[in-house]
Amino acid sequence: MNKRTLITGASGGIGAEFAKIFAKNGNDLVLTSRSEDKLNALKNELENEFGVKVLVIASDLSKPNVTAEIFKITQENGIFIDNLVNNAGFGWHGEFCSQNLSKFNEMINLNITALTELCHIYANEMIKNGGGKILNVSSMASFMPGPLQAVYYATKAYVTSFSQALFEELRDKNVSVCVLCPGAVKTDFVKNGDLAGVKAWDLAKDAYSVALCGYKAMQKGDLIAFNQGELKFASDFILPFLPRKTILKISRKTMEKTK
């Protein structure tokens, strides 16, 4: 029997690349995002190319009670999840006080609340069924505060911290937890987050390479995955030793628009 993998934010970018990688490796899939048309197109592509089964669940994870609905649907279809990939999330550029508070509430609900709920729901199912794997997509942003993306950086700090704690709690229950912390990635994140002109994206990596890095780390049971060696070096040997105000200045500089 094929492994069954649930991927959030699967209609494009890193999520769609995850779907292709897992399908290529013989996983049946549950794909969810807000865009039903894109999910169905991806479903057809993956079923035709790899002969796997794909269940599409169009949902907005920033809304309340959606995670329970997803679980109900997987249960009704007799699908017990072996791998959970929490990929859905978004950011927004600009000074905190000039932005609409409702957008930040939506970001917190998606980046933190939905991820936490899905981990709770499916980790319990994995424990009951003898094991499983969880991959939470965070960011290099999680290792520092983020002026001009204050809430986004803070949500990713939560994801990285939470994932590491969960790794320790679940490691003796045959459930592994890995957190993927990439740098800038070439996806619609730039357009959707009003990040055009931010210099940090000049050297952004492609979504496939980031997804492949996360997939391999998840399979190995790694705790943290970086898609670039220099990011790991910075997190381990540079950021911990810099004065906090220096980090703030550097972080802000990387988020300022140049055009």
Rank of each mutant, 00 (worst) to 15 (best):
S138A: 15
L84W: 04
T155M: 09
S98F: 13
L101A: 15
L110A: 04
I57T: 06
A200E: 08
K24D: 11
N65A: 13
A217T: 01
V159P: 00
V175K: 04
G132W: 03
C97G: 07
I247C: 10
K249E: 10
P243L: 10
I112K: 00
F233A: 10
G15Y: 07
Q219M: 14
T160V: 06
K249N: 12
K191D: 05
M107R: 00
G183V: 06
L42C: 01
I112C: 07
A88W: 01
V151Y: 04
K249C: 12
S138C: 11
T67N: 03
N129K: 13
T67W: 01
V137F: 11
E36G: 03
K63T: 08
N25R: 12
T258A: 10
L135H: 03
I108S: 02
I108P: 01
Y122S: 04
S176D: 06
N65T: 09
A225Q: 09
K133G: 03
R34D: 05
G197N: 14
I21Q: 12
G197V: 11
T113W: 05
V185K: 06
A204P: 01
L148Y: 00
K259A: 11
L170M: 14
K38G: 07
V30T: 13
F241K: 09
K173V: 11
Q219K: 13
F237R: 14
K72L: 06
L203T: 11
E76I: 03
I14N: 01
A141I: 09
S138Q: 07
W201F: 15
K220D: 02
G9F: 03
F226T: 03
G78V: 12
I134T: 01
I14E: 02
K220F: 07
D28R: 05
I7H: 07
D194Y: 12
N2Y: 13
C119S: 04
E45R: 03
K133M: 08
L101H: 03
N48S: 10
G12R: 13
K205G: 05
E45Y: 01
G91H: 03
T113F: 10
K199I: 14
K103L: 15
E256M: 12
L239E: 09
N136R: 13
G183T: 03
A114S: 00
E36W: 08
D206Q: 13
K253Y: 14
L239T: 15
N100Y: 02
A204D: 08
A234G: 06
K199P: 01
G12Q: 13
K199V: 14
K63N: 01
I250T: 04
G229K: 05
K3A: 08
F22A: 01
T246N: 12
A157G: 13
L223N: 03
V151C: 11
I57K: 10
I73S: 02
E95P: 02
N124C: 04
E17W: 02
L135D: 00
N100M: 13
Q149T: 13
M140D: 00
F189T: 02
E168Q: 10
F90C: 04
T258R: 11
K24Q: 12
V66S: 05
T254G: 08
K156R: 10
M144A: 05
A234H: 00
A23V: 06
Y215W: 15
T246H: 11
G197Q: 14
D222F: 07
A19I: 06
W92V: 06
K72Y: 12
N2C: 09
K156M: 10
S102E: 05
L46E: 00
E106V: 00
K53H: 13
Q149M: 15
V179R: 01
K186Q: 12
K199Q: 11
M255V: 07
L231A: 08
T32M: 14
